[in-house]
Design a protein around this nucleic acid. Structure first.
Lengths: 144, 144
DNA sequence: CTTGACCTTCCAGTAAGAGGAATCATTAGG
DNA sequence: CCTAATGATTCCTCTTACTGGAAGGTCAAG
């Protein structure tokens, strides 16, 4: 299979597949003409990678998952550990975003959003430490 | 004020402040010795930037917010527009993360996490299109 | 034989800085 | 006055996970 074929079959852009080869995630053979020659197993790996990435696993996670995937003697605990770590990262990010959302939505609500220059959003961003107006503030801030 | 002073006062790393000068967000003066000489107004800008960044605004948003901040004739609607756009981005990301979390937590629950090699997580990642086992799948996937 | 679809490599750019090296300036202590 | 410790400067590389594009080789169809 050429790169176009695996690209279609795996759903990954050809660019991405070349990149994955670059960083050693797949090692396709080469045809006489210099074209990459992908085996079924390469296609499986790429599909695996695509799915792992779509779940938000980092490339490094993917590398480890792939290793475990190909290790018939793996312990499912190792896989679970990676997934749990990723879940933690997701939860952290969600909390961070939720805090930002909180603060921001309060500010947006408080802003008239008309032709006048008065704007609680700017007021908040410009606020000196200490002269906090209401309790719309100090929410997302302290999270980071 | 030297860079160390504004760094302490604004809470931003000196590296970041230099970077912000690089990309034109602040323009401190220079002392005879070549040191950056920050005015009060520069400090205000930097604090403003720090707060905007902590709310997740992109540098580009920050640039626009700063412009509006310094424009006495601004319309609060313009500020609100930027904030609303950012809120949308936050919501998108949260939805994405929530979908991943969903799928992933199901898989983690289903995994024994012991010494044995059988692992629903790997099984899911390796699954051929079509032979979907349960409805733990196809959740986060189609979101992206 | 040419056209167009594929394929190749290499280079640069993204966001938003972080880390570090080499060098210069300032200041406090002995 | 000399020295050591800070603190400042610039410049370069690295990070994540690709994406875009240029310049050029290959292949099948007409």
């Amino acid at each position: 299979m050429n790169i176009g074929d695996v690209s279609r079959l795996s759903g990954l852009p050809a660019k991405t597949i070349r990149y994955y080869e670059d960083i050693g995630l797949v090692e396709p053979l080469r045809s006489n003409n210099g074209y990459r020659a992908f085996r079924e197993s390469d296609l499986h790996k790429l599909a695996f990678l695509g799915r792992a990435r779509s779940l938000g696993f980092t490339i490094d996670d993917c590398r480890n998952l792939l290793k475990l995937y190909q290790d018939r003697d793996r312990a499912s605990a190792d896989v679970r550990q990676i997934a749990l770590g990723h879940l933690d990262r997701i939860d952290e990010k969600m909390a961070e975003l939720a805090a930002m959302r909180e603060t921001l939505s309060h500010l947006v609500e408080a802003c008239a959003g008309d032709h006048r220059p008065d704007c609680p959003i700017l007021a908040d961003l410009a606020a000196e430490e200490g002269e906090t107006p209401a309790e719309t503030r100090r929410t997302a801030r302290n999270a980071r």
